[in-house]
């Protein structure tokens, strides 16, 4: 696919540019000092991923059922209000959300994971709901007319035909999540944010850079793999009809 090639080319180009710029401005010996932090990067990177995986995983398994329930005819009446509430929620800055989570739950893994969970929950729920509501009427009518039960319609027709929208929401949400994990360090969540914030505070450029580069690479890698995953998972026939439209 030329499109994904282009995608990778653009990313590589950008990374190369950033690395060149950094290399040009680096003092001698910075690279060696950065390598000194390698064990920390690996350890904190593990924490980083763990926090992201727990919060995003929990968000995924709650957000999709929530979106499904909201899109059911019986709930549609209230769904608009819930969506408006979620939309307002999504405009709240992440630092503010994490800070408030800390005031309620204290310091550590739990408040960090909870804050990230809330941040990740919103886009997935919103897109699941919108995706299901936008399944063309004639498809659901055909499914009803052929005698599918409500559950069969959901699993065989509605979900497969809204998967690309749900995926888009999930990708946005996971990117947001992995991008916010470094901030979660501030409320005791650990992760690569520790190197970045400590580096800034101690004016230790190699420490800060080792954390920042690892954080950026991790975020870009997660986004890229989710993009590839969505290409694989979305039913073939739907990708075709999307290409046609």
């Amino acid at each position: 696919m030329p499109k994904s090639l282009l995608n990778i080319a653009a990313r590589t180009l950008l990374m190369a540019a950033v690395i060149l710029l950094l290399a040009a401005t680096m003092e001698e010996g910075t690279l060696d000092e950065m390598l000194y932090y390698m064990p920390d990067v690996l350890y904190l990177g593990g924490q980083h991923l763990e926090l992201a995986a727990v919060s995003a995983g929990l968000a995924l398994i709650t957000a999709i059922p929530l979106g499904v329930i909201l899109s059911r005819p019986a709930c549609r009446r209230y769904a608009e209000y819930v969506m408006q509430f979620l939309n307002v929620g999504a405009t709240i800055p992440t630092l503010a959300l994490l800070a408030m989570s800390m005031s309620f739950l204290g310091i550590g893994f739990l408040p960090a994971a909870f804050g990230l969970y809330v941040i990740t929950l919103l886009p997935i729920t919103r897109n699941t709901y919108t995706g299901l509501c936008n399944v063309p009427n004639h498809l659901t009518e055909a499914a009803r007319g052929m005698g599918m039960t409500a559950m069969q319609r959901l699993l065989r027709v509605e979900l497969p035909n809204s998967l690309s929208v749900i995926f888009a929401g999930t990708r946005t949400a996971f990117s947001l999540n992995i991008g916010t994990v470094p901030i979660a360090y501030l409320i005791g969540g650990g992760g690569l944010g520790e190197l970045v914030f400590m580096g800034i505070r101690l004016n230790d450029t190699p420490m800060m850079l080792s954390g920042a580069i690892a954080t950026a690479l991790l975020a870009v890698a997660v986004d890229l793999s989710l993009g590839l995953l969505s290409q694989i998972t979305i039913p073939k026939g739907i990708r075709m009809s999307a290409g046609q439209a």
């Binding site: 950033v18 680096m26 910075t30 991008g179 944010g193 954390g211 920042a212 950026a216």
Partner: peptide, 18 residues
């Protein structure tokens, strides 16, 4: 779209030495 996936704190960090 790549720029926007880079977490803000990492972007700040990358810009500091430059």
């Amino acid at each position: 779209s790549v720029v926007i996936t880079i977490p803000s704190i990492a972007l700040f960090g990358l810009m500091i030495p430059i």
